[in-house]
């Protein structure tokens, strides 16, 4: 464990909790893509099946359980408890265009052609694009609530910190996982446009709105 991975994980946790609290406090999931949240629930489920087969550390196990629990709680709030506030008309990204190619890629490019390994690879590829329905929704409505932008910033920060973590581990631990690194870099690039808007607008006290 290094400081970049730890702060990355905590930033990820902060993002998840910010989103849960936003929905809970406002009793509304307006502006939130339920599709992205379903994709994240699938990501955690397929990646953390190793909870049943291998133990790494108490930290590792507890974080996995918390991530999975929060992901399903978020999906429950959006599609069940606060369903009336869910903006399905604007959440129109076609997720099959992500899931099908990502599934095919996981079968073709992986470290080992075994059931658990392919599911793990699938989760890595899927996570890299799972935020697209959310970004698509914001570009479609042309705006995002400030709290939603904090959520996205924490998610993007988590990805950026993981890249620093990989550079660290490459030099100091002789560790690298090419699949995770390539997918992680792709994922971080997807946030760049948002980072720009976050710094130039939200941090200066303005609402995030896009020109029509």
């Amino acid at each position: 464990m290094n400081i970049f991975r730890l702060t990355g994980d905590l930033s990820h946790l902060a993002a998840i909790i910010i989103l849960l609290l936003k929905i809970w406090k406002t009793r509304s999931c307006a502006g939130i893509s339920g599709k992205s949240q379903i994709l994240f629930a699938i990501v955690f489920t397929t990646r953390y099946l190793d909870l049943l087969s291998s133990f790494i550390s108490l930290y590792n196990t507890s974080m996995k359980v918390i991530y999975i629990g929060c992901a399903y709680a978020t999906v429950y709030l959006i599609y069940m408890k606060f369903r009336a506030t869910y903006d399905g008309n604007h959440d129109s990204f076609r997720v099959e265009f992500l899931v099908v190619p990502v599934g095919g890629l996981a079968v073709l490019i992986n470290h080992d052609f075994s059931f658990l390994e392919i599911l793990w690879t699938f989760s890595i590829y899927l996570e890299s694009v799972a935020i697209l329905p959310q970004l698509f929704m914001i570009s479609k409505t042309g705006e995002a609530e400030t709290i939603t932008t904090h959520y996205l910033f924490c998610l993007g920060l988590y990805r950026a910190l993981y890249i620093v973590n990989w550079i660290w581990r490459y030099y100091f631990e002789a560790f690298f996982d090419l699949i995770a690194i390539v997918a992680g870099v792709v994922q971080t690039i997807l946030y760049c446009d948002f980072f720009y808007l976050y710094v130039t607008k939200v941090l200066k006290g303005k609402k995030l709105s896009l020109p029509a």
Partner: peptide
Amino acid sequence: GFNINPKDEL
């Protein structure tokens, strides 16, 4: 050698 893919990350 390099340690590839030990899956200790989240």
